[in-house]
């Protein structure tokens, strides 16, 4: 599966467009991470636990998007975008979407 965020796949031609595919994850803070985050909130600095969380949820969102694309018979996703939104206090959604295509 080739994933790009441009309209084409470099070096290949799109032969079939299969429409929008997407993947999302909703993540929230959890107590163990919060303990350190609470301290960091006084001193400042990177919240490593949360960076990991963000990375994990991004990977999962991309994976879900790829699963969708594979199920419709695509071998590439182009024009991928990420979007985030706060769902409720302490929870946020990460949403990945793109166009599933068949390339040769």
């Amino acid at each position: 599966m080739i994933v790009t965020n441009i309209e084409t796949v470099p070096g290949q031609t799109i032969v079939k467009h299969l429409g929008l595919v997407s993947g999302n994850t909703v993540r929230s803070k959890h107590a163990g991470r919060d303990l350190m985050a609470g301290l960091k909130n006084i001193f400042g600095g990177e919240l490593t636990g949360y960076t990991e969380l963000l990375t994990e949820s991004r990977e999962e969102a991309v994976q879900r998007m790829i699963d969708q694309a594979r199920s419709v018979g695509a071998n590439a996703i182009v024009n991928v975008r990420f979007s985030t939104s706060s769902v409720a206090a302490g929870a946020a959604e990460l949403y990945a979407y793109g166009t599933a295509v068949v390339v040769e």
């Binding site: 790009t4 441009i6 309209e7 084409t8 070096g11």
Partner: peptide, 24 residues
């Protein structure tokens, strides 16, 4: 968005993420 000489290249998605806290 337009990559010059795209025909001779291979592309893939790359990401980088970080969470930084504000100090008190």
């Amino acid at each position: 968005r337009r990559i010059p000489d795209a025909e001779q290249l291979d592309g893939s998605l790359v990401c980088g993420s970080v969470v930084i806290s504000v100090d008190f």
